[in-house]
């Protein structure tokens, strides 16, 4: 089956920053993304778990975008401008999609 090259950008970010990030993505004309909850993890700020968090401040989410390769720089600039000072991880991988016109 015919597939098309695309980029998958996975941004792990604090839950309180989710709306700011998705708004920045939309301003950069990235209108397709998926937001996933994160159960827990460990990083430079120590170990944490979603279980028993009394506030959204300590939670994390993952925002996943699949875009055409030529739109990657605009997305990364929009994301970096917002996330520079915050806890999080931005990861870019190559992927393939079936319907290129959707991205």
């Amino acid at each position: 089956m015919q597939t098309h090259k695309a980029k998958r950008v996975e941004i792990t970010i604090e839950a309180v920053m989710e709306q700011r990030l998705t708004a920045a993505l939309e301003r950069a004309e990235v209108t397709g993304f998926t937001v996933l909850p994160v159960m827990g993890g460990s990083g430079r700020s120590g170990r944490w778990s979603r279980e028993g968090q009394v506030t959204r401040a300590a939670g994390m989410v993952v925002v996943v975008c699949i875009i055409r390769p030529e739109r990657l720089d605009a997305l990364l600039e929009a994301a970096f401008g917002l996330l520079e000072r915050h806890i999080g991880v931005v990861c870019v991988t190559d992927c393939e999609v079936l319907r290129a016109n959707r991205f």
Partner: peptide
């Protein structure tokens, strides 16, 4: 506070260590 202020601090002062203020307050 351990609900409204931690969220505000994560946005306004992300350099502050959340483990310190959350553990102390809660």
């Amino acid at each position: 506070s351990y609900i409204a202020v931690p969220a505000a601090m994560r946005v306004a002062l992300p350099e502050a260590n959340p483990a310190v203020y959350l553990t102390l307050a809660l």
